[in-house]
Design a protein around this nucleic acid. Structure first.
Ligand SMILES: NC(=O)c1ccc[n+]([C@@H]2O[C@H](COP(=O)([O-])OP(=O)(O)OC[C@H]3O[C@@H](n4cnc5c(N)ncnc54)[C@H](O)[C@@H]3O)[C@@H](O)[C@H]2O)c1
Ligand SMILES: NC(=O)c1ccc[n+]([C@@H]2O[C@H](COP(=O)([O-])OP(=O)(O)OC[C@H]3O[C@@H](n4cnc5c(N)ncnc54)[C@H](O)[C@@H]3O)[C@@H](O)[C@H]2O)c1
Lengths: 209, 209
DNA sequence: TTAACAATGTTAAGTTTTTAACACTTTTAC
DNA sequence: GTAAAAGTGTTAAAAACTTAACATTGTTAA
């Protein structure tokens, strides 16, 4: 497989989510325009993405839901799975753990970290909370590759450095403070206010024309 | 002002966030490459975006932080401000309210809605929780334009319909279940798993080449 | 004072992403 | 049987977005 466009990767994840829902409903086949409708995009785009990953559906019946789910898994998932840690077991951290628990077989939150002694040693939704002091050892022992940052904003920069030093290869930063990482570490900044402001902007725009 | 690219709108919101942090630190001027560094993009792109909004900095001193913050506000904020509601005052809903509280003067969460009688009538971080039954009246009374959906996934579709009927013009959907809205309502689907899967994918990719 | 520098602003080129167009294939209806 | 309909797969065109190139202009330093 050659290079898949950035955007296609995102959509594949979304297609799978939609397909899993369809599978639950007992649907065995699905047309490109049905997927498109769910994702608010065009059928052409769906077909193009599927072309890129080399999947071909059956004419007149569309795509086999189960097959497609598996194929997407082959592409975006890692064979051995990827272990994930959450740093900062506060409101958001706990909500995320709760939410992710058991959602994806190949992506597992295996550890949480905090500085609060009351939290350290506890387990939340099956995820043990360690002291941030033990970050390095736990990351190594549990083969953790990805870290989700949900610490208070003031600690974001330091925490990112710590994560990098401990050998983490991907960071998802939920704090509103942008951080820096060296080459070789993939960083995604995820600010919720940006999205809300975007919605508000387009609402305003729609009103004024 | 003509059309601003979709992506520019997002970045403007991010620039403002970064600029506000700089202002706090007492910085009065900033160069395009400094903004770029924070946002992990190029200086050219920053300058281009600012060109599009018609802001010109002073040569050799860069951009005036305060002025730029105000200008971005003029563009993306709504003059009278926009009121927002959260539907579903659970873990995520509460975390969001807590987080947004007081962050933006022009974007205010003024109401929460739930079905749980234990929550209705209470106040969280200053936001009153109403029964979902009273959605329509409260939306009208409080001039709520945007709704953030944090209800259980099974209620997502119905809740979206309700919001649309009540006159809401923008929806930010945090549930993992895509919903549909008619023309004239701006919808943003915001799935956290997609982002995490993307991070995991690029981590995997980096390992294998 | 004048050359070197380091910034901005802008036009042009390049890249990525989306959309359109259409050839092809099975099913259905007559 | 054969034409119409409704899908897929793919190439080509268009649109959106980013990057490069460079002219311009204050500032600094010899
Ligand atoms: N709550 C939200 O909806 C939301 C949304 C977007 C972003 N955020 C951001 O996410 C972060 C967390 O938000 P929250 O509401 O969960 O806050 P919180 O205060 O509830 O949780 C923060 C947790 O981090 C722990 N912590 C503090 N310093 C630490 C360190 N150095 N290492 C590890 N753990 C540490 C604290 O003990 C606490 O448990 C904040 O930066 C916030 O701005 C929150
Ligand atoms: N927790 C997370 O980090 C996270 C992340 C991404 C997405 N989500 C999604 O967000 C949603 C909420 O997650 P949560 O962890 O807060 O769940 P939760 O169960 O803690 O909260 C759901 C809340 O919605 C209320 N509710 C139920 N039906 C309702 C209705 N018809 N109208 C209004 N309110 C109603 C419930 O009483 C409860 O207070 C879920 O769909 C979840 O998948 C959560």
């Amino acid at each position: 497989m050659k290079h898949l466009p950035h955007k296609t990767i995102e959509r594949l994840s979304q297609y799978r989510r939609a397909l899993l829902l369809c599978l639950d409903k007992g649907k065995t086949h699905i047309y490109s325009h049905e997927i498109a409708k769910i994702q608010h995009i065009t059928a052409v785009q769906v077909r193009r993405d599927l072309m890129l990953i080399g999947y071909t559906g059956t004419l007149r019946k569309g795509y086999n839901v189960k097959e497609l789910i598996d194929l997407i898994g082959n592409i975006i998932d890692s064979d051995e799975g990827i272990n994930v840690a959450i740093i900062g077991m506060g409101n958001l951290g706990r909500a995320l753990i709760n939410y992710f628990a058991g959602k994806r077989s190949k992506l597992k939150i295996v550890a949480g970290f905090d500085t609060n002694p009351d939290k350290i040693g506890n387990t939340m939704s099956g995820v043990p909370c360690y002291s941030i002091e033990h970050l390095r050892e736990v990351v190594a022992a549990e083969k953790i590759k990805v870290g989700i940052m949900t610490v208070p904003a003031d600690y974001a920069v330091d925490t990112a450095d710590l994560l990098v030093k401990s050998g983490i290869k991907g960071i998802l930063n939920y704090t509103p403070k942008p951080v820096n990482v060296p080459d070789g570490v993939y960083l995604e900044e995820y600010d919720m206010i940006t999205t809300l402001e975007k919605v508000a902007f387009y609402v305003k725009l729609q009103e004024t024309d």
